[in-house]
């Protein structure tokens, strides 16, 4: 059987906020290592990958690998019934056709019990190749959310450019253009700071659909910082760490100049 108890139930609520608008349903693969889920949007532009390692849970048991085929709209509706400080337990039998969700209030005076029916999802798992990225940028997640929102007013494309010690976001459209630059800060240990790492100091600039970047920022509350990894002609990686034991990552195909 499978049983996973998450003291910080809000993590699951926040993760699903970052997933549900991009992927309507997905296979949540449960193994002794933890829970993982990946899915592409219907137009094959963005890949979403969630990993919740077993250490994230205060109790985790998975005797045999279990696949939970979940409709994300339904899953989200049920998770909205949980308070932010609820403890959430997921339970399923081996080869399940339903999953049990138990919410316990922080002071244990309320318990809510839900059953979600599972669906068979015909989906292939993709292998993600190791890539040497030309640039790795860490910025406060709220700042990235704000920049994506602000630049979306100018057009449907956001250009991300990394130069030595600086990351620049720009957009151009009929009403005008905008350019927002963030300089690398001195102390990179602070979550409020910006760090820019480059391989071989070669500037890198790529164009992306602002619509998708805005979808990704729905995961902002998962982490104080977001990491962007860029490589010419490769998908952008946007990563939100979930403490030390999980992550929500997005891969976004760049726009190609004609």
């Amino acid at each position: 059987m499978f049983e996973a108890r998450l003291l910080q139930g809000s993590i699951l609520k926040k993760a699903l906020e970052g997933i549900r608008e991009l992927i309507t349903s997905g296979n949540w693969e449960c193994s002794s290592a933890g829970i993982s889920m990946q899915g592409m949007d219907p137009s094959h532009v963005a890949l979403t990958v969630l990993m919740l390692q077993n250490d994230l849970f205060d109790q985790f048991r998975c005797d045999r690998n279990v696949t939970l085929g979940l409709n994300h709209a339904t899953f989200s509706k049920i998770l909205k019934c949980a308070a932010n400080d609820d403890i959430i337990t997921l339970k399923a039998e081996d080869q399940p056709d339903e999953c049990n969700l138990l919410f316990q209030s922080a002071n244990d005076d309320k318990t809510s019990d839900f059953i979600i029916k599972l669906t068979d999802i015909d989906q292939e798992t993709l292998g993600i190749p190791d890539t040497e990225y030309a640039a790795t940028v860490k910025v406060p997640s709220v700042e990235f959310q704000r920049i994506c929102r602000d630049l979306s007013q100018f057009g449907d494309t956001i250009i991300i450019s990394v130069k030595k010690g600086c990351v620049e976001f720009s957009g151009t459209g009929e009403i005008g253009s905008a350019k927002i630059a963030l300089k690398e800060s001195g102390n990179v240990d602070d979550d409020e700071k910006v760090s820019v790492e480059m391989d071989k100091d070669t500037p890198c600039s790529l164009s992306f659909a602002s619509r998708y970047l805005n979808y990704f920022t729905k995961a902002t509350s998962l982490s104080d910082t977001v990491t962007l990894q860029l490589c010419p002609e490769h998908p952008l990686v946007v990563s939100y760490d979930i403490g030390d034991n999980g992550s929500l990552k997005y891969y976004l195909a760049p726009k190609i100049e004609e």
């Binding site: 592409m40 137009s43 094959h44 532009v45 963005a46 890949l47 292939e124 798992t125 993709l126 292998g127 993600i128 190749p129 494309t157 164009s207 659909a209 490769h234 998908p235 891969y251 195909a253 760049p254 726009k255 190609i256 100049e257 004609e258």
Partner: peptide, 14 residues
Amino acid sequence: GATQGRLDSFFTLK
């Protein structure tokens, strides 16, 4: 203008 690329060529089936 720029056209939207797709991810298919970047990832392999497991």
